[in-house]
Design a protein around this nucleic acid. Structure first.
Lengths: 236, 236
DNA sequence: GCTTTGCTTATGTCTAAACTTAATTATACT
DNA sequence: AGTATAATTAAGTTTAGACATAAGCAAAGC
């Protein structure tokens, strides 16, 4: 129900819960300065480091604002954060109890279009691998993937048989990334999307667009179009 | 470019960076067990607690898997996490240098429809406040909000003048929540969406649906429809 | 062979104490 | 008054040491 790391029962967790309660019950109002770490340490009978850990968690969550010397305040307008897990398609499909398979619709080496080169911070004129893949769950199309891979940052990509392992899994297993851009959007299905996803042109699709980099430059830029009606869940 | 909490320069941060480098450079491969905290503490010349902090950060990020006694391993299939900040509409619009205003299209007390009652975990037959709002940036529609508010969990809601303060801001400032459900979806604009967002019926819209609870029960359930073409950015 | 039991180990958590650093407040100076 | 400077404070970080706990391992028992 709350943060990931938390193994539920620990002094720090208990403090997190209690502070959260005080905020929700409005004992501590938005903008209020709360007692300092030393005071809370005495109140809860723990070391200051433990209070520090608890308050840091709440600050990461966006519920508290902390500044050196100025103290800790309850965030006034918490622009709350949500964490979303971007799963591996296959695991997602199999996790839902369906049979997974994928199909490479097209694979070729091609000049990066301007739009792609720009997204990947590459000079124009680079040759990239272009892959189009459909992922199926129980033989029904689940996701359409349009991917460009940079062989400079992902050496060996030319030799992979993507019929056997899908492009995402191969990349994820072989090229951890340092930085990524992730973007969500809604788009009306074009003719190709519609055909591959077995739906009508114009249907609203959830689009995830992601570009990843390692120390050698952009690894890959991908556009994922989910099947109509798909919804993505985020946890606060 | 990386984690939120990080104050950039600290021993723990340096360790995070170095471990990340070793993973990216494949000195430590996926599935490999890495040296234990004690060994890394000696290697980096710091206390074990410092190594622990650094490795915890990387584990939270999903790059490492840690288990008691079993040691720490590089995650095999990192289902990476992304954080998205759900901003206050007004701040978002003003932050983009536009003039913000909102318009309450309708406000009434009404019986919760089944679908809404279910989403809010409420027994059927509850009276809720139903609000429809359009948020504008420079007089162009930016977001359409369809909201149900539970007066039991948000007492005082009946007395608020939502022409003056928009529903979201009032709620956020007065009723911090404990738990939330957040969901993203794409939908084709219906007639009402199209009219309010000044677009054509059928246009693909990004939809954010969110329900929040405090200790008194569900506070509010809201469906936000963003203007066509809007994209949401997440950071890893 | 299979299961149980206990030992061992790596991480998880906490503590007390120290030092660092940003930011506020007070003070002295112009 | 306005500005520069120093003192103070609260959070940020680190350390060394301790104990807790889950999980792997091996020996003993069935």
């Amino acid at each position: 129900m709350n943060d990931r790391p938390a193994p539920s029962s620990s002094k720090a967790q208990a403090i997190v819960a209690e502070v959260r309660r005080r905020i929700v019950d409005r004992e501590w109002r938005q903008g209020d300065r709360i007692p300092d770490e030393a005071a809370l340490a005495i109140e809860f009978g723990v070391a200051r480091a433990t209070v520090n850990k608890a308050l840091q968690m709440l600050a990461d969550e966006g519920l508290l604002d902390r500044k050196r010397r100025a103290g800790t305040r309850v965030t006034v307008n918490p622009a709350r954060k949500a964490t979303l897990t971007i799963p591996i398609v296959r695991e997602q499909i199999e996790g839902a109890g369906m049979i997974y398979h994928h199909r490479i619709v097209s694979q070729k080496t091609a000049l990066a279009p301007d739009e792609v080169a720009q997204r990947m911070d590459l000079p124009p004129g680079r040759m990239l691998i272009h892959l189009q893949t459909v992922h199926y769950g129980d033989a029904k199309p689940f996701q359409v993937e349009d991917r460009w891979i940079n062989p400079v940052a992902a050496p060996g990509v030319e030799l992979v048989d993507f019929q056997r392992i899908n492009p995402n899994e191969w990349l994820v297993r072989n090229f951890p990334w340092l930085r990524a851009d992730i973007e969500f959007r809604a788009e009306n299905a074009d003719a190709r999307d519609a055909r591959l996803l077995d739906t009508r042109q114009g249907t609203a699709l959830l689009i995830l667009q992601r570009t990843t980099w390692n120390d050698l430059g952009a690894i890959t830029a991908v556009r994922l179009a989910f099947r109509p009606g798909y919804s993505l869940t985020a946890s606060p």
